[in-house]
């Protein structure tokens, strides 16, 4: 763009500095990039880049530490919330978050997830629900939808044989250790705005030390779903959201 085109205009949106300039390995249109971006925007706006420690999972976002310009620790598959527990207990003055996919958080890491929230660990857990194992080639996740075709359910997921979509966020909201539990999404500009607000609130709550903040993000996986990115928006809205309705599942109580 020529400078003269920009003359008299002010910059109203630019990528946050807390996101590195490294080219992201994610597939075109993948929701992971959107969540990385808003998370880093919040950290920049709150001015807590040097006070924040993230924990990366195993899954497509295994390299999140290459993009998030904060101190980070990689965890074994499913164990991000357990590692985040340790980090926060040793360094209670830091803002600590874990970032995990559904295969990581709601399959192999189910035990760690439930017990972290049950202990009310004072961390933020971010849970990317794209209904599939993206990294390993689109296998069924506990969160896959009834009838969803994946590489391990070629005839569609049959709940009678392999269970129903695991609404782990609903389960967690019932635990007394949970302070703030919400379900957000990435598919529209407004959804992204609300997601950002939820992340901001969660970091602010961490100062109060009242329990675990948990944000599920209903996301997409164009490669695993075998759709164009644009088609995933419709699928997310029409198929995912009826199973995973957006909104707060537990709001902080003032006491």
């Amino acid at each position: 763009m020529e400078e003269n085109v920009l003359e008299g205009l002010e910059c109203v949106y630019v990528k946050p500095d807390t996101l590195t300039d490294k080219y992201q390995h994610y597939c075109p249109g993948c929701g992971h990039g959107v969540v990385h971006k808003v998370l880093m925007e919040v950290i920049e706006e709150l001015g807590i880049q040097d006070k924040t420690i993230g924990v990366a999972p195993v899954g497509c976002s295994v390299f999140a530490y290459n993009y998030m310009n904060v101190d980070m620790q990689e965890a074994a598959h499913g164990r991000a919330s357990a590692v985040a527990t340790g980090v926060k207990r040793v360094l209670p003055d830091k803002y600590v978050y874990s970032y995990q996919g559904d295969g990581d958080l709601a399959a192999i890491g189910t035990g760690e997830t439930i017990h972290t929230v049950n202990r009310g660990e004072n961390i933020l857990m971010i849970f990317i629900n794209n209904g599939i194992y993206g990294m390993t080639g689109g296998q069924m996740a506990p969160t896959s939808l009834p009838g969803q075709v994946t590489s391990t359910t070629p005839y569609g997921r049959d709940p009678k044989k392999i269970g129903y979509p695991l609404k782990i966020t609903d389960l967690l909201a019932n635990l007394p250790g949970a302070y703030y539990v919400t379900r957000q999404a990435v598919h529209t500009p407004n959804a992204v705005r609300k997601l950002k607000k939820a992340i901001k609130n969660s970091f602010e709550y961490q100062l109060l030390d009242r329990g675990t903040c948990f944000i599920e993000v209903v996301s997409n996986c164009p490669s695993g779903w075998k759709m164009t990115p644009v088609d995933t928006i419709k699928y997310l809205e029409e198929e995912m959201l009826p199973q995973y309705p957006l909104g707060d599942l537990k709001v902080p109580q003032n006491n």
Binding site: L6, L9, E10, C11, V12, Y13, V14, K15, P16, L19, Q24, Y26, P28, G29, C30, G31, H32, G33, V34, K37, V186, H187, T188, P189, V192, R193
Partner: peptide, 11 residues
């Protein structure tokens, strides 16, 4: 807001 690769700057 929706760009996953943060490729867009707006004026």
């Amino acid at each position: 807001l929706v760009c996953p690769d943060s490729a867009i700057t707006v004026y």
